[in-house]
Design a protein around this nucleic acid. Sequence first.
DNA 1: CGCTTAATTGACAATGATTATCAATAAAGC
DNA 2: GCTTTATTGATAATCATTGTCAATTAAGCG
Lengths: 136, 136
Amino acid sequence: MSTSPAPRMTKQRAAIMDVLSKSEEFRSAQAWHDTLRHDGSSVGLATVYRSLQSLAEAGQVDAVVTDSGETLYRRCGAEDTHHHHLRCRSCGAAHDIEVPEFERWAEQLGVKLGFTGIDHTVEITGICRDCAAQGR
Amino acid sequence: MSTSPAPRMTKQRAAIMDVLSKSEEFRSAQAWHDTLRHDGSSVGLATVYRSLQSLAEAGQVDAVVTDSGETLYRRCGAEDTHHHHLRCRSCGAAHDIEVPEFERWAEQLGVKLGFTGIDHTVEITGICRDCAAQGR
DNA sequence: CGCTTAATTGACAATGATTATCAATAAAGC
DNA sequence: GCTTTATTGATAATCATTGTCAATTAAGCG
Ligand SMILES: [Zn+2]
Ligand SMILES: [Zn+2]
Ligand SMILES: [Zn+2]
Ligand SMILES: [Zn+2]
């Protein structure tokens, strides 16, 4: 296997990783970009998209695709560990969750039905207590 | 509760429901539109989008959002029954599956963590035997 | 340190799926 | 048939995301 070269540590990438570390919420690339701008950084939108994508591929951040097709990112709580989420549809707050039994079951079912390269998506969403309290 | 009026049976809607009934595969609105055109129908693309959406809301067809954010539709095999899918990422062929244990577990977990309006997404994907055989 | 080189950036154009418009058409019900 | 009103379709508009490409700059080296 060819180990891809470690990405350069630019001030943009640093700013992005920094802002990510300050929130537990799932937010879109555009939302993160807005925050970075408000914080004084002048990172370009394309750079934010590119960085979030590479960080997600590297497993440094979690990424989920909403029903509307938008991709949301957040700092990965349990790095290196395969997991899923219980996420608030309103504010993006999320809990990391694990479903080991399901993982095994899915893999076996796939194989049984003749499928290879099995993958899966498991996401639970709802409205968190805070958002519910505020009628959000 | 106000029962929404039954949709009118137009020749376009009939054509769409008809073409849907001829395949078990998950396909995009545009793909279904192409097929309809090839079959001689002159349905408009917007109409295909609108019809598939309303059919999905009515539970008449299944809809899934891919990792790239594209929405795929297919005739609902088990109408009225809540279920999920094992889908081929290459050709769209799919099996309906059920995961009752997971359903209960997810609901309980959400409640335990203070979430309301709990919903979930569970999709298993892979490459089916046929596609694998053809190196697709 | 300088210097070289290839990765990264950012402003902006381009894409691609989906949605909105709105005048024309055609189900439904009487 | 006639009226009412949902539906259609051609097309413009959105919106998130990706591509372009010249300018910048992190890294590695001497
Ligand atoms: Zn919330
Ligand atoms: Zn998993
Ligand atoms: Zn297949
Ligand atoms: Zn379910």
